[in-house]
Amino acid sequence: MSFLAIAKSRYTTKKYNSNEKISEEQIEQLKEILRLSPSSINSQPWKFVFVSEEATKQKLASISYFNEPKINAASHLVVFYAINDIPKFEAQIKQHLPEGAVAYYNQFLKPLSEAEIKSWFQHQVYLSLGFFLAACASLDIDSTPMEGINIEEYQKALPLDAYKPLFAVAIGYRDKEDANQPSVKPKSRLHPETVIQSIG
């Protein structure tokens, strides 16, 4: 399937088939794809937690507001974290990145406020989200990106030292009766001339 066809067919799943689980082979592929996600200066200020164990998944579902039914029925929940410790990040890039990338950080990012630096970290994690959603669709896996989670409670439920949860993605296979799928509810997007401009 072409990438354009994937873009036309993928959608935010609202109802999952709780009886259908993603194979371990495909989960391993998704983990590797996330590891290979792009980030500015190859900064990789993230961690990703895959949850399939039912008790933990249900606990997270209960602190995910209106997303609870989706998480409970989905095969897995993936929680995306951004690093929240600037000295730890600086030590990481000093150890793993070339001098030019570290110099870029020191010149353009390090002088910013703590809030601005952490916002930059979080922007990188959102890049991985887009990569991940496309990867899921390429594997015929349905997905639901969710900012509607209780961040503080997620931090307590799945604490990662020096990292902060940002959002989660439920993944699995749609219920055949899901009313949000494109075959039932056609995609609605702005017209090309509204969002695309060409120069030259």
Score class of each variant (00 low, 15 high):
residue 29 Q to H: 12
residue 108 F to A: 05
residue 64 S to Y: 10
residue 38 P to W: 05
residue 36 L to N: 07
residue 20 E to Y: 08
residue 48 F to Y: 13
residue 104 Y to V: 07
residue 106 N to H: 13
residue 42 N to A: 07
residue 61 A to F: 04
residue 58 Q to S: 12
residue 26 Q to Y: 03
residue 53 E to K: 14
residue 30 L to W: 06
residue 72 N to T: 09
residue 70 K to P: 01
residue 27 I to W: 10
residue 103 A to S: 14
residue 90 E to V: 06
residue 58 Q to W: 10
residue 55 A to K: 10
residue 23 S to W: 12
residue 46 W to K: 13
residue 39 S to W: 00
residue 92 Q to G: 11
residue 31 K to H: 05
residue 31 K to T: 02
residue 79 V to T: 09
residue 81 Y to L: 01
residue 80 F to P: 01
residue 109 L to H: 09
residue 92 Q to E: 14
residue 79 V to A: 08
residue 63 I to A: 04
residue 79 V to P: 00
residue 99 E to K: 15
residue 84 N to K: 10
residue 75 S to G: 12
residue 87 P to G: 12
residue 58 Q to C: 14
residue 64 S to M: 10
residue 96 H to R: 13
residue 65 Y to K: 14
residue 79 V to H: 03
residue 44 Q to R: 04
residue 53 E to L: 12
residue 82 A to E: 04
residue 36 L to Y: 11
residue 54 E to M: 06
residue 43 S to T: 07
residue 18 S to T: 10
residue 113 S to A: 09
residue 85 D to G: 03
residue 19 N to R: 13
residue 45 P to E: 11
residue 36 L to K: 11
residue 50 F to P: 10
residue 22 I to P: 02
residue 37 S to A: 09
residue 46 W to Q: 11
residue 63 I to M: 04
residue 26 Q to M: 02
residue 52 S to A: 08
residue 100 G to K: 15
residue 53 E to Y: 14
residue 83 I to D: 10
residue 58 Q to T: 13
residue 22 I to D: 00
residue 70 K to N: 01
residue 100 G to D: 15
residue 83 I to Y: 04
residue 108 F to Y: 11
residue 92 Q to A: 12
residue 22 I to L: 01
residue 77 L to V: 10
residue 44 Q to F: 01
residue 101 A to Y: 03
residue 64 S to I: 08
residue 77 L to W: 03
residue 88 K to N: 14
residue 49 V to N: 07
residue 66 F to A: 13
residue 72 N to I: 14
residue 45 P to V: 06
residue 93 I to M: 11
residue 56 T to D: 03
residue 59 K to G: 06
residue 87 P to K: 08
residue 99 E to S: 11
residue 33 I to H: 04
residue 37 S to Y: 02
residue 61 A to C: 03
residue 58 Q to M: 10
residue 81 Y to A: 04
residue 73 A to V: 01
residue 60 L to C: 12
residue 106 N to E: 15
residue 81 Y to S: 07
residue 107 Q to D: 10
residue 80 F to Q: 03
residue 113 S to K: 12
residue 88 K to H: 15
residue 61 A to I: 05
residue 87 P to R: 07
residue 32 E to I: 08
residue 95 Q to T: 13
residue 70 K to A: 03
residue 67 N to M: 05
residue 22 I to S: 01
residue 77 L to G: 08
residue 22 I to T: 02
residue 53 E to S: 05
residue 84 N to V: 11
residue 85 D to H: 15
residue 40 S to M: 03
residue 49 V to C: 08
residue 54 E to Q: 15
residue 44 Q to S: 04
residue 91 A to T: 12
residue 22 I to W: 02
residue 25 E to V: 13
residue 65 Y to T: 08
residue 110 K to A: 05
residue 18 S to R: 10
residue 60 L to Y: 07
residue 22 I to C: 01
residue 109 L to V: 15
residue 108 F to G: 02
residue 91 A to V: 05
residue 76 H to I: 07
residue 42 N to T: 06
residue 101 A to I: 03
residue 104 Y to T: 08
residue 89 F to N: 00
residue 37 S to E: 04
residue 40 S to L: 02
residue 84 N to D: 13
residue 75 S to F: 10
residue 41 I to C: 01
residue 86 I to T: 02
residue 110 K to V: 00
residue 54 E to K: 15
residue 41 I to W: 02
residue 90 E to Y: 05
residue 26 Q to S: 05
residue 112 L to N: 10
residue 42 N to D: 09
residue 29 Q to L: 13
residue 36 L to T: 04
residue 77 L to I: 12
residue 17 N to W: 01
residue 78 V to H: 01
residue 75 S to Y: 06
residue 83 I to R: 08
residue 110 K to G: 00
